[in-house]
Design a protein around this nucleic acid. Structure first.
Length: 272
DNA sequence: CTTCTTGTTACTGA
DNA sequence: ATCAGTAACAAGAA
């Protein structure tokens, strides 16, 4: 389940690997995984190259020299695996970009919810602007967080997960952020006080930064562009730890509830 | 067999 | 307008 730290890890790695390499062939294995027609997609890519790789929330944006953009969303099980050597066919490969130097970028996606999409600048901006401020961008600070949350009557968990408000946080990091901020994910955000907002802001920043430092979390499918797992799973304090003793108070066990349609884990003693 | 999981969108009803 | 809840999408694990 790639969230901001995993997508950011992929972005940085991919930037070192494919910038400036000419794309000479495109294999569309699964048409459903490409939002455009295969024909349009292939024509836009062939004989062009990636000049920059950006990210907004969980969306990867590959800028091409011809002013088109490849938007990539991995959703739940998407992977981008880069192979320098001749590759073995992979089980759930949906598309392959082949570069002039014989290297290849595989888009694998077991559950086929992820997608690739070619867009011009205008379309790209329109899609990017549907999501709120990126959770680690310079434009996101305590004041912005307060302004975004102040009048919301919704629960903390549902607001953290809402990509239209803040982009990049998914189920794993939402739970970890709430635990780190010592806030009950069921709290209504308009009831948070200044101290709590400060804790929440610091936890969003700290948890995401730490997760990026450890190259993301592999819980089930996530791997980086070299096929390696992320190292942050061992640092998780509540996600996937229901019934275990809380790492903080060491007294209560981690509770598991449903919130905003998502499994949510928290410590009822430490998170108020 | 059923239920659950994940990110996102679309829809319903309060 | 705002919110919670649910279905849908796919496929596998329990």
């Amino acid at each position: 389940m790639p969230e901001l730290p995993e997508v950011e890890t992929i972005r940085k790695d991919l930037k070192k690997k494919i910038i400036g390499k000419k794309i000479i062939d495109i294999k569309v294995v699964q048409k459903k995984s490409i939002k455009n027609s295969a024909d349009k997609f292939i024509k836009a890519l062939r004989n062009n190259y990636v000049v920059n790789i950006m990210r907004k929330g969980k969306l990867l944006v590959l800028e091409l020299n011809n002013e088109n953009y490849i938007l990539i969303h991995l959703r739940m099980t998407g992977q981008l695996v880069y192979k320098l050597d001749l590759s073995l066919a992979q089980n759930h490969t949906r598309a392959i970009l082949c570069f002039e130097d014989k290297s290849e970028l595989y888009f694998n996606d077991l559950r086929r919810f992820g997608y690739l999409q070619i867009a011009d600048r205008k379309e790209k901006d329109k899609i990017i602007n549907k999501t709120g401020v990126d959770a680690i961008s310079k434009n996101f600070n305590l004041g912005v967080l307060k302004k975004l949350f102040r009048n919301k009557k919704r629960t903390l968990k549902s607001v953290l997960l809402d990509q239209k408000i803040i982009a990049g946080i998914g189920n794993i990091y939402a739970d970890e952020i709430c635990f780190d901020a010592r806030l009950n994910p069921s709290r209504k955000v308009n009831g948070l006080n200044d101290k709590e907002f400060k804790r929440l802001y610091n936890s969003i920043r700290n948890i995401l930064r730490l997760a990026i430092k450890h190259r993301g979390t592999t819980f089930s499918d996530y791997i980086d562009t070299s096929g390696r797992k992320g190292n942050f799973a061992k640092f998780l304090k509540v996600y996937g730890r229901e019934k275990e003793n809380c790492k903080n108070c060491k007294e209560k066990s981690i509770k598991r509830i449903k919130l905003a349609g998502r499994t949510t884990r928290y410590c009822e003693q430490c998170q108020k």
